[in-house]
Design a protein around this nucleic acid. Sequence first.
DNA 1: GTAATGACCAATA
DNA 2: CTATTGGCCATTA
Length: 130
Amino acid sequence: MGFRTMNTTDKAKFNSEVWTVVKQIPSGKVATYGQIASMVKKPENVEDNSFRAFGPRWVGTAMATCTEDVPWHRVVNSQGRISIRGEGTTVQRERLESEGVKFDEQGRINLKVFQWQVPISGPIQPELPL
DNA sequence: GTAATGACCAATA
DNA sequence: CTATTGGCCATTA
């Protein structure tokens, strides 16, 4: 009992759900790979430990194979830095800057300011001064 | 079959 | 600040 590996259906479903979530990130905001992983439903056959360890990486893999309608550039790593090597690095940064996202001297985004916060249902939350 | 590597992350050194 | 490591999957060579 208890497979550890994903079948083809699991992988396809996972990628699809990842793309659906990423599409909801508004312009001018970013999300982290780990954040996306935590918002996607864990594949049935995958252990909790495994998903915790590799979920974020699988999100990255899903980004590498996404279509044009997915704003992949709004996904960065937990340090607020761009994880892509090569040409994609420049493209991602330019796209984000054109949306108003700021980078510091070390190429990092202040996640306190620019990270996508999922709206909480209930009482209106007080807004923090920028 | 083995071995290396990956658009990650949190904890350490 | 940078570098390394455990996690222990999926893909590719």
